[in-house]
Design a binder for these strands. Structure first.
Lengths: 244, 244
DNA sequence: GAGTGGTCTAGACCACGGT
DNA sequence: CCGTGGTCTAGACCACTCA
């Protein structure tokens, strides 16, 4: 059952096998994965070893345990990632729940990827990709302007429906329409001055500082799914890190 | 021996007690802490429970295990924190080892802390603090301009030696001269446009984007030790995060 | 080779969430 | 109440480091 390298610790091989089950959709989000006792019988290992493997997956953010209920596949909430970078002067704080910025698709086209995008998505230069241009607004004001690149093979159905029906969040759409789940992402942050285009779209003065966030999002199998570049006014920007 | 709240799990109380030993300098960095077996006898708990407590402290970055050698108190290397934020076009990459930017103290004075600094350092408004103004250079070019605030009670001896003898790194100096060890820090990152002062000190054009890093550094006992604000040209700025 | 942490087992009892 | 994960024990053997 466990065909991984014999030299690796048991709990590592368990972890790999469990990750595969998640990637292959043998275990589904929203449903609890098997009990510790069930797992320990299925794999024929002690319950402590199962615990260790699960512990690692919880630390890596793939699983979530809840005493008395079970262990679940965790879906990252990428809304928070926005809030980690930008502060909003929220007049709506009383009503509870984090407000989602609204979104509008400005353009959608089939294209060939520029070199860096093709490299990030691990595609040939001649592969077809979908490019979206998207504006995100918070309380009627432009917050972010985004360009989004997606491999056409995985996201073909995005070309079939009207862009006005895309809604405010893309990742749930990817999941429902294309069966693609975003499990993790890597973001790189730099600063530049607003070009004429960007200044106009964000409604800020020319050469004002702009934060650029490049994000590569991947699925449970660690294959790249989406590359996007987002730009926002730097005066709203705010980020906090703990160093140990 | 363990006087913490009876209701807490054993390993939590162990962890608290071990943290206290680190803060009180009963256990010293560079020396291994007692063996798992010794600890399990000293606390009269099973070795597995010791492991769990140590595991948590390793995850929090306070301890470091090394198979065959022992478990050690970990000293954060804050040089890296700079490199996490700024990329240097290093012509010296061949020689191995990360180059440390050189530093020059521009001014040193005894002062009363402004309101936000006093709050961050948990001091009365009337307490004495030491203020340092410091310039950091990389390959002869200004990289960061810093203002540093320290409680006078803990750092009095910094006023006694010549500022030209401070060297390129402050934290080792804090430790050798004042017996204060920085164990963790919290940084907040924002963007602003260069004021005339800052532009001149960093040798950049007026209104160019500038990255502002506010750092609150604390000791093993989580008491604040130092507050500093660093400014650097944003075009050198670069930061990367993983989201799960 | 002696001593350290790393992996693994096979149990026990407790605390919590649902029914 | 039952089943879940959370805590804890008391061992065993292995892999690594250093003298």
């Amino acid at each position: 059952m466990l065909n991984a390298d014999e030299r690796l610790p048991l709990y590592q091989r368990l972890k790999d096998d469990m990750m595969a089950k998640i990637a292959n959709r043998e275990w589904l989000p929203e449903l609890a994965i098997p009990t510790e006792i069930e797992l320990s019988k299925a794999y024929s290992v002690s319950i402590g070893t199962i615990r260790k493997a699960v512990e690692v997956l919880v630390a890596e953010g793939l699983l979530e345990r809840s005493q008395g209920r079970g262990t679940f596949i965790r879906k990252p909430t990428f809304v928070n990632s926005l809030f980690r970078f930008f502060r909003f002067h929220s007049g709506t704080s009383g009503s509870g729940g984090t407000p989602v910025p609204s979104a509008r698709i400005l353009a959608r086209q089939l294209a060939e990827p520029p070199e860096p995008v093709a490299a990030a998505l691990k595609l040939n230069k001649r592969s077809k990709v979908i490019r979206l241009d998207r504006l995100r607004l918070f309380q009627e004001k432009p917050l972010l302007i985004e360009e989004i690149w997606l491999p056409h093979t995985k996201f073909a159905r995005l070309m079939e429906i009207d862009t006005s029906a895309f809604g405010d969040l893309l990742y749930p759409l990817y999941e429902q329409l294309c069966g693609q789940t975003v499990a993790s992402a890597q973001e790189t942050l730099t600063i530049e001055s607003a070009s004429p285009d960007v200044a106009e779209q964000l409604q800020i003065a020319l050469n004002q500082p702009v934060v650029v966030i490049d994000r590569l999002a991947s699925g449970y199998d660690n294959q790249p799914l989406e590359w996007r570049r987002s730009r926002g006014p730097a005066d709203q920007f705010h980020y906090q890190v703990d160093i140990r």
